[in-house]
C-alpha cells in the first residue's frame, strides 16, 4: 500500500482547560482532496496549524510522506515546510509588499530564485488565477476581498507545492466569486496533482472541491467519508450542519475560549 501523504493519529491540542483537538485520526492519500467541515471555533484552523508546525500539538503523531514531523527541529522543519502551500483564512498577504512581491516571496526568499525570474513566475501564477500583470504592481490593501483571495491563492501555489491547505477560501465572498475561487482551486490542484485539505462552512464549496469530507465536532472527527455519501451519513450532527438547521444536537457556543 502506498504511504499516505499525510497521516495523523491521536492528535491532541488544548488551550488551558479547553480541549480543542481531542484525538484526531485522519489520512490524506496522494492527490486526494479532503474537506474538513465544522462549526466556527471547532478547531479547524488549529488542526491545520498543528500540521504546519505553527502550533505545537500536545500529543499525537503527524507523518508527512511517512516522516514524523512532531518535534522536528527548526532546520528540518523548514525542509518539510517546502512541501506545503497554505491559503490563510484572512489571506495574510504581506501588506508592505506589492502583489507580485507577495506571490514571488516564496521563490525568492526560500528557493533563491533570481528576482527577474521570480517576477515572471509570479505574473504567470497571477495569470492562472485570472489577474492581469498590472494588478501585480498594486498593494494588497488596494484590492477587493475576492481579488485578495486570488492573490493569496497564487502565493500558495507559487512554489508548486505537493500539499496545499485552504482555510475557508470562500468565506466572506459573494456566491459568484465563491464559485470562481472554487473553480480556480479545483483547476490549480488538478494541474499540480497536489494533495489538499480544505476547510469550509460552505457545502457547495465542499462538494465541489472535495473527494472526501470529514466533520470536526467537539475535538473529534465524528464522521468521514466520500463526498457522495455525505447526504446519507446517518449522523444527526452532520445532517444538521449540511442543512444549516438551528435545531439539532449541535449547540452553538457563545464564548470563544
Amino acid at each position: 500500500m502506498a504511504v499516505p501523504r499525510i497521516a495523523i493519529s491521536g492528535l491532541r491540542k488544548s488551550f488551558g482547560p479547553k480541549k480543542v483537538l481531542d484525538g484526531i485520526d485522519v489520512e490524506v492519500a496522494i492527490g486526494e482532496s479532503l474537506v474538513v467541515i465544522g462549526g466556527s471555533g471547532s478547531g479547524k484552523s488549529v488542526l491545520l496549524k498543528c500540521i504546519l508546525g505553527l502550533m505545537q500539538p500536545d500529543s499525537g503523531s503527524i507523518r508527512i510522506d511517512g516522516e514524523e514531523t512532531v518535534g522536528l527541529r527548526r532546520a528540518e522543519r523548514a525542509r518539510v515546510m517546502r512541501k506545503f502551500g497554505m491559503l490563510f483564512q484572512g489571506g495574510a498577504l504581506f501588506d508592505s509588499l506589492r502583489v507580485w512581491e507577495n506571490v514571488a516571496f516564496g521563490p525568492i526568499q526560500s528557493d533563491r530564485v533570481p528576482v527577474d525570474e521570480a517576477k515572471q513566475i509570479a505574473l504567470q501564477k497571477l495569470g492562472s488565477v485570472g489577474l492581469t500583470p498590472d494588478v501585480g504592481e498594486l498593494r494588497p490593501a488596494e484590492l477587493s476581498g475576492g481579488m485578495q483571495k486570488r492573490v493569496a491563492l497564487a502565493r500558495a501555489i507559487a512554489r508548486e507545492p505537493e500539499i496545499i491547505f485552504f482555510d475557508e477560501p470562500t468565506t466572506g465572498l459573494d456566491p459568484i466569486m465563491s464559485d470562481v475561487i472554487n473553480d480556480l482551486i479545483v483547476q490549480c490542484v488538478k494541474q499540480l496533482g497536489a494533495s489538499t485539505i480544505s476547510i469550509t462552512h460552505d457545502m457547495a464549496s465542499a462538494r465541489k472541491i472535495g473527494d472526501r469530507i470529514a466533520m470536526l465536532h467537539e475535538g473529534k472527527l465524528i464522521w468521514q467519508g466520500p463526498v457522495a455519501e455525505i447526504d446519507r451519513s446517518g449522523d444527526a450532527h452532520v445532517d444538521q450542519f449540511i442543512h444549516g438547521r438551528a435545531e439539532g444536537p449541535i449547540r452553538m457556543q457563545v464564548r470563544k475560549g
Partner: peptide, 25 residues
C-alpha cells in the same frame, strides 16, 4: 504596531509557511 498587525492577520504564520524564519526576516 507593525509586528502586532502581522501577528493578528497571520502574516507571521504565512512567513513560516513560506520557509522564512520570522526571527531572521
Amino acid at each position: 504596531a507593525e509586528l502586532g498587525t502581522m501577528r493578528v492577520t497571520e502574516q507571521i504564520d504565512a512567513l513560516t509557511t513560506l520557509s522564512t524564519e520570522p526571527f531572521k526576516y
